[in-house]
Amino acid sequence: MQMDLRTVSIQPLRQTFSNIARRFGDKPASRYQEGTYDFQSTVNFHYRPTWDPDHEIFDTARTAIVMADWYAFKDPRQFYYGAYTLARAKQQEAAEANLGFVENHNLVATLDADLRQRATDLLLPLRHVAWGGNLNGASVCAYGYGTAFTQPFIFQAMDHLAIAQYLTRVGLLLGDESLLDQAKASWMNDDAWQGLRRYVEDTFVVKDPFELFIAQDVALDGLLYPLVFDAIVNDVFASQGGTAISLATQFMTEWFKETRRWADATIKTAASESAENKALIEKWAGHWRDRAAAALRPVAQIAVGDQADTLIAEQVEQFNARLAKAGAQV
């Protein structure tokens, strides 16, 4: 039934939901706020998990980080599903255009054989690293506490999957399917990759969701993405005639720039909550940074030979400065 209604202005009884009003007062709220705050249950759970009877379904005790309010976290991108999906759809279009451009103009043929080989050896095993990031994103989303904290991790999980899929397509631009199998064999067996594979597998058994966030999204992604996609692909490779590769991996560069804003905000909120949190974050970040830096050295060597040490030292320095700005001294 559709009636003809005159446009009338009627006075609303309230501006937003009660839980939002309790936090911010009764005023118009954003979609991020209404879609995020207090969605996850916190009290009166019916049963303990049969898979973890020591905890409630959602339990602050799964992490050593202590927050008075887990909704102190705020995603500076204000990503709820709709905002996230629209943002990624746009980036996806750009990535598609870039990959299409490289393919249609057969730009891979302009790479010299040595560069093409180094790019292949460096980038393709990273598919598996991203696949690991997918699993870890799922972990934090599943077992973390409070929607403001957990919501970005389902986005991280799916983004990592997308990156693994984009790298697969880069691989198929660089050669045929056998390259993917070779890269997997390197990932499984080559000495250069074993440090990184061990790192990734070790993160799979980290139970504390916040530590896992530090190990995966802060330390590993925080060193790997600027090292591989900025310092190596965008600088070194591009200077050697490899702009095609840089074009084909632009998604990753943009993605890291965007997601680190969220990661920094998350660290900052937790670290500024208490000295204990700050100390924990510093301990974890220091530990995983050192491991990640060591694991990435032989990987960088594949691409840039003995420049690797310098590049990694620079990355570590930038990483430390970045964390210092977020309130953690490492």
Binding site: R31, F39, Y80, Y81, N134, A138, Q151
Partner: peptide, 17 residues
């Protein structure tokens, strides 16, 4: 499962919106 997890977040949020 993860794709469905993402979809379900969509359902929760589009409903509240």
């Amino acid at each position: 499962c993860l794709m469905q997890s993402l979809d379900e977040l969509r359902h929760a949020q589009t409903q509240i919106h």
